[in-house]
Design a protein around this nucleic acid. Structure first.
Lengths: 337, 337
DNA sequence: CCTGGCACTCCATGGTCCTCAGTGCTAATT
DNA sequence: AATTAGCACTGAGGACCATGGAGTGCCAGG
């Protein structure tokens, strides 16, 4: 069906269209690419490609434009991930070094990725569920309040204030703290609920109320918001693009945290680059955008995802290269922390 | 120079232009507003207003449009802050209740403000400099590392990992912790540097190195990033507006944290609403936007600011009402926390 | 000081024409 | 059978022009 040359034509159409943002015609192709055949032949191939739904014409007397299906084939079979230039690698290193805490690592990463790709970058905080407890701290704040701080091995810190405990006994808090740490330090967060289940029964009855309150807040903080935190940068890059859907719809979609989470969340194969093109995205407003995403993590363990959102008409090889490189670097940095 | 009626005309021009986004003519004014005079009279007044620079014509045979100076006069003398509707007040309460920590309070506030004003909202985290230390916690993490957590009375938490201390002695950390808390708990952050100055000399020489490292990180964390944290929402609302400057420039400006800080920072009179119109903003890309900002805080103490960015052609009374109301609510919530 | 009347200005709208890039088809060539 | 040259055809977009109408400035009369 699709011989070598037709594929080469498709590749050329995609590349030219990405560069110029204008429908590309047979003559332009023959000039700019060394396909070794005449425009007429290219036209015939284009008819075949159009019949198979890989390209389409905006109107009768215009050049061809790739369809979502065309981009899909391009990404799957006609292109390879483009490695970063040395200059870009240096930019990554100098950009990410010197971050003092997790917040800053994430903030810098997302700006870096936006800058490298000239598109919108998304970075998800390391998931709580897949990391483990390094330490739990309980701090009596005076009055009836206690602050709980959970520190994970990925540098993430969750804190909560627990109120309305009745009179708080400092010694009881100290006991509870060491008991808690003995029980769950080093555990995966997923295993915490089981591990704390029968702790209350080990607490003297007069302090049991406090222990129960603290544990319930602890469990809640682990379960509830585990993957909510997501950061965005580079929305200004969207202004340059003209979308089929209105820009407003795209911006609105990107402000919904739940949408972002789902965008990153549906990777098929972890540890691989995922590309979702146009209508492959579930969201109405994102019909004319593509998402390139990847997992990052320490060792084999995937902690969370990063991604880039841009027009379907994007430089896939370059974007994929940038996403992959940044994902690796951030993994290294977290490992070294 | 400017009699009552001319001011009424200016007010009408501003209101109509904000509503319709089209230059407003003398006839339309006479119809829609009860000025009690004929279009011809209004035309004469408009000439005067134009000579004084309050309004301008896009071209000869078009209606008039307010200038920055016109908006300024409108805001200063011709309008009053519009109180929120009961429905809006209810929205605020239901929106802000149920926030579990400072992060969530801020996140909800910024979305709320964007929704109320249908513009871009900015919320600054409560400043560290103007709050006081509630508690400092030091947690040995094992190895050569210690985590420091500073909790302020505004619910804000800063944490840092301090590394490369040599062997960490747990007892020494405990001593240091209680010494630190005795020295600075309750103090304004601005007073902390003085208060810790001679602490190292009170530490036994063999642990002095650790104490110095911890203190230097503490001071750094207080000084360096005190007002950096700022959150944005509602950028999608910009897409609906057509700016003189390109949308891209506006979005770019809003991605620069330093720009946002300056935008909010230059309030003349704290505890008052500040409005900066068009070219009154220092930033190139924000020449055709206005910023409405206000302080929020607990009691008399101003902790930080919130604001709204929109086109100069905005509904000033409504926006000012929303900003003021939200600023008050967030103050109450922080006070109650 | 206000107002009706009037000539004038200029933008926006819509129609027409023309150009031109690009197409599909056919017949000739390899 | 595949490729190519030639050619008629198509439709978007730009230039040009005419027209309608909103809005103006000005003047003379109330």
């Amino acid at each position: 069906m699709l011989d070598e040359r037709k594929l080469a034509v498709l590749r050329a159409v995609v590349e030219d269209f990405v560069n110029t943002n204008e429908p590309v015609g047979s003559k332009a192709l023959a000039d700019r690419h060394r396909l070794g055949v005449s425009p007429a032949t290219i036209r015939n191939d284009m008819v075949a490609l159009e019949e198979d739904g890989y390209i389409t014409q905006p109107h009768t007397s215009a050049g061809r434009v790739p369809t979502d299906k065309g981009y899909r084939l391009f990404v799957d079979r006609l292109s390879s991930v483009k490695p970063l230039s040395p200059a870009e690698r240096r930019a990554i290193e100098s950009f990410l070094n010197g971050a003092v805490d997790l917040d800053e690592i994430v903030a810098r990463t997302v700006r870096l990725l936006a800058q490298l790709t000239r598109q919108v970058a998304i970075v998800q905080y390391p998931s709580l569920t897949r990391s483990s407890v390094q330490h739990v701290e309980l701090v009596p704040l005076g009055g009836q309040r206690v602050m709980m701080v959970v520190i994970t091995n990925t540098g993430r810190v969750e804190q909560r204030v627990i109120d309305g405990l009745g009179e708080v006994n400092e010694a009881a808090v100290n006991d509870l703290r060491s008991m808690l740490n003995r029980a769950i330090a080093g555990l995966h967060l997923g295993d915490v609920p089981d591990a704390v289940e029968d702790l209350p029964s080990q607490v003297p009855p007069e302090h049991r109320q406090v222990a129960v309150s603290v544990l319930s807040v602890l469990l809640e903080s682990l379960v509830e918001r585990h993957e909510e935190k997501i950061v965005l940068a580079g929305t200004a890059n969207l202004a340059a693009v003209d979308f089929a859907a209105s820009l407003r719809d795209v911006l609105e979609a990107l402000e919904e945290n739940m949408v972002l989470i789902r965008l990153l969340g549906e990777a098929k194969d972890p540890s691989m680059l995922t590309v979702r093109i146009g209508a492959e995205n579930f969201h109405e407003g994102l019909r004319s955008t593509s998402v390139v995403s990847a997992d990052y993590g320490v060792g084999n363990q995937s902690l969370a995802k990063i991604g880039v959102v841009g027009p379907t008409r994007m430089d896939y090889p370059g974007t994929m290269g940038a996403v992959r490189a940044v994902a690796r670097y951030i993994g290294q940095i977290l490992a070294g922390q």
